[in-house]
């Protein structure tokens, strides 16, 4: 029989379905407490509106796999970091036209210059990319454009 952790590991992010919650780093743990499956998830952003969908998806998938009692807990601490996205998750992002986050810097000082990232276009590989907006369709992404192939693409932000 498949373990609850294995079942939960197959649940994908509602906004970025090429990523599992595990690869995104949102799914922190899956444990049995007596006969209850307890899954802990950490929001990417505190206002992330997809949390309820993630919870429902986890519950449904585990129910369908025969685990009748499932509890999903929110784990706020430590806060999510884009460094938690796994190598497999990063590959999935690239293969789906998204740009993966670089390492999170430790600087907390005021930054008045433009955010500098050395990005490569996930479609054509060109380094000639340009920031369009620090905010994309979801809080965790910025919007870029490739000056080589002229396609826009989304970059998962370092945070």
């Amino acid at each position: 029989m498949t373990s609850p952790a294995e079942v939960a590991a197959g649940v994908t992010d509602p906004e970025m379905p090429m990523l599992t919650l595990l690869d995104l780093g949102v799914l922190r743990s899956v444990e049995m407490e007596d006969d209850v499956v307890v899954a802990s998830i950490t929001p990417t952003y505190l206002g992330c509106p997809a949390m309820a969908t993630m919870r429902d998806d986890l519950v449904h998938r585990l129910n369908d796999a025969g685990f009748g009692r499932v509890e999903v807990r929110v784990q706020l601490d430590p806060p999510w970091s884009s460094d938690w996205i796994t190598d497999r998750g990063r590959r999935a992002l690239r293969e789906n036209g998204l740009s993966e986050p670089g390492n999170v810097g430790r600087s907390v000082g005021l930054s008045l210059g433009p955010t500098r990232r050395n990005l490569y276009c996930p479609r054509c590989g060109s380094p000639r990319t340009r920031l369009l907006s620090e905010f994309g369709a979801t809080a965790c992404k910025a919007l870029y454009r490739c000056d080589e192939c002229l396609e826009p693409f989304e970059h998962v932000k370092e945070i």
Binding site: P43, Y45, G47, S133, F135, G136, A137, A139, L143
Partner: peptide, 17 residues
Amino acid sequence: MEDDVALANLALDLLGQ
């Protein structure tokens, strides 16, 4: 439009807090 999206995202962050 980019700033529209930015402002909505900022609002959402604060709403979450």
